[in-house]
């Protein structure tokens, strides 16, 4: 299995390390040709405006959209924003997922936090399914899920922080910073067609 991580800006090294721990081959993706032969792609956390601008400038928008119509893509934080069809402001988006996101929904860095989440879908890779400790950094919220997108996880108050649409995955938090690789395992299963 070959998993790419979009390496335009952000914490792509942390995702590459998690995927490598699970035994899949990894590749940094900076140009359209880097997508050839990949089974899945992760779009990391970072600044969504930076990632979007670089994706436009290096001709990645259409190749990424074509990739996402056939293969698995997972966006964390900035990556989730980039996958969405609406981020409530003018910035380049892939528009692959039927989700509306609100950037910096929790506020500035002082309001960033760590939390333990219960993600029901993880039972498919971990029958015990203990809560997952994750961090939210200037995180977006998934305000609305429509069309074929489904809610994967909410906070206790019902606000949506993860969604799935076929083999597309969006999380507003950062599993790659926690050392808990179960969501990466879940994504690898999606990418492998399981």
């Amino acid at each position: 299995m070959h998993i790419g991580v979009l390496a335009l800006q952000g914490d792509f090294a942390e995702h590459l390390a998690a995927v490598a721990r699970l035994g899949a081959a990894t590749r940094e993706v900076r140009l359209p040709a880097d997508l050839n032969g990949l089974d899945g792609l992760i779009i990391p956390g970072g600044e969504s405006t930076t990632i979007g601008k670089l994706a436009v400038d290096f001709g990645l928008i259409e190749p990424l959209q074509a990739f996402g119509r056939e293969k698995a893509i997972w966006g964390t934080c900035a990556g989730a924003i980039f996958l969405s069809k609406d981020a409530r402001r003018q910035q380049p988006l892939l528009g692959l997922m039927d989700i509306t996101v609100e950037r910096n929904a929790f506020g500035r860095q002082v309001q960033s936090f760590a939390a333990s989440l219960h993600i029901p879908a993880l039972a498919t890779v971990d029958p015990g399914n203990a809560p997952m400790r994750v961090v939210f950094i200037r995180a977006p919220l998934i305000e609305e899920v429509s069309g074929n997108a489904e809610v994967l996880c909410t906070l206790e108050d019902g606000r949506i922080v993860a969604a799935q649409q076929g083999c597309l995955l969006a999380t507003s938090f950062h599993p790659e910073l926690s050392g808990d690789d179960r969501l990466h395992q879940y994504f690898l299963k999606l990418a492998g067609g399981a």
């Binding site: 390496a7 335009l8 800006q9 952000g10 914490d11 792509f12 090294a13 942390e14 956390g45 970072g46 600044e47 930076t50 934080c77 900035a78 860095q109 960033s112 961090v135 950094i137 200037r138 950062h174 910073l177």
Partner: peptide, 9 residues
């Protein structure tokens, strides 16, 4: 964590 998001930038 925020610094990790700034990497490559």
């Amino acid at each position: 964590g925020l610094a990790q998001m700034l990497k490559g930038g």
